[in-house]
């Protein structure tokens, strides 16, 4: 499946400076693993050694948090938009 991935500011230096890139993969885990091979500098920033999501990384498919859609096993369809965001303090109220 081919999808687009939005890169947050914090990861851009490690991923060639791009804000949006094209990615391939049938699951979230597969997409993230491929990113760590293409951009070795993000290794350890996306996935833990056991393949689970980094604690401070939130991944959204079409703006839905994948932790509630199966985590790294969440499926990716063609033309999906994947957004990576660092977990930051909300509490903006």
């Amino acid at each position: 499946m081919s999808a687009v991935l939005r890169v947050p500011t914090v990861l851009r230096p490690a991923m060639g400076g791009a804000t949006v890139i094209a990615v391939e993969g049938s699951t979230v885990g597969e997409v993230l693993f491929k990113l760590t091979t293409t951009y070795p500098a993000v290794k350890g920033q996306l996935l833990n050694d056991d393949g689970t999501l980094h604690r401070f990384l939130n991944v959204y498919v079409n703006d839905d948090d994948v932790r509630y859609l199966g985590g790294v096993d969440a499926l990716i369809a063609n033309d999906d938009e994947i957004t990576l965001l660092p977990a930051v303090a909300g509490g903006l109220w």
């Binding site: 939005r6 947050p8 500011t9 914090v10 990861l11 920033q45 980094h54 401070f56 990384l57 939130n58 957004t83 965001l85 660092p86 977990a87 930051v88 909300g90 903006l92």
Partner: peptide
């Protein structure tokens, strides 16, 4: 999407 614009982070 707060984490998109916050640029004070060094890494995750």
């Amino acid at each position: 999407p707060s984490g998109e614009t916050v640029d004070g982070l060094r890494n995750l």
